[in-house]
Simulated assay, not measured.
Amino acid sequence: MNTGLFIATDEKSKPLKEVLRKYKPNQVFKPGEVATYSNYGISLAGYIIERIYGKPYYESVQENIFKPLRMRNSTFKQGSTLAPIVSKGYGIDGKERRPIHT
């Protein structure tokens, strides 16, 4: 199980397609029965964007959103040096989480 919030280097990153297949959640409710946030659902939407644009999600967001808005310190790329000002992540226990280096 993952204990961190993000990875430290891009080399440790797995393709979104692979992650979505490996960690597919069980369906708990029937479609349309309950409205709730889903990390898997958001990731699936990102994968759809990857398929449409033919490139990684972070590149599409960088080119189509961040660059036109001149958001130079924003990125979705894991382990990126593009965002020199990175917020710290914290777990439910209130302790700071660091990048995974495995």
Rank of each mutant, 00 (worst) to 15 (best):
Q27F: 04
R98C: 10
L44V: 07
K88R: 13
R51G: 02
T36N: 14
Y23T: 13
V28I: 07
Q78Y: 06
V86G: 11
F29G: 08
S13L: 14
I52R: 09
I49T: 01
Y23V: 11
R97T: 15
L20F: 03
Y37R: 14
A45D: 10
F29W: 11
Q62E: 11
E18Y: 07
G32A: 04
E59K: 05
I48Q: 09
P68N: 02
G89H: 04
D93W: 06
G79D: 07
Y40M: 05
F76E: 03
G91I: 03
E59T: 07
Y23Q: 08
T36W: 12
P31F: 10
T81R: 08
K22N: 08
S80D: 04
N64C: 05
A83D: 06
F6L: 12
P25G: 00
D10E: 15
L20S: 02
K24P: 05
Q78V: 11
E63Y: 05
Q78I: 10
R97K: 15
R72K: 15
S74P: 11
Y40R: 07
N64F: 05
I100M: 12
T9P: 12
A8K: 14
Y23S: 09
Y58E: 00
R98Y: 15
A83L: 07
M71H: 00
F29E: 11
G94V: 04
I100E: 11
Y37C: 08
E50K: 04
P99F: 02
T75R: 00
A8V: 13
T9N: 12
L44P: 01
K77C: 03
V34L: 14
R70T: 13
I7E: 10
L82E: 01
E50H: 06
N73R: 04
V34I: 15
I52Q: 06
N39T: 07
F76K: 03
Y47I: 03
K95Q: 12
R51P: 04
T3A: 09
M1P: 13
K24A: 07
F29A: 08
M1S: 10
A45L: 13
L82P: 00
I49V: 04
D10S: 14
R21N: 13
I49A: 02
G89F: 06
N2F: 12
I100A: 09
R21H: 15
S87E: 08
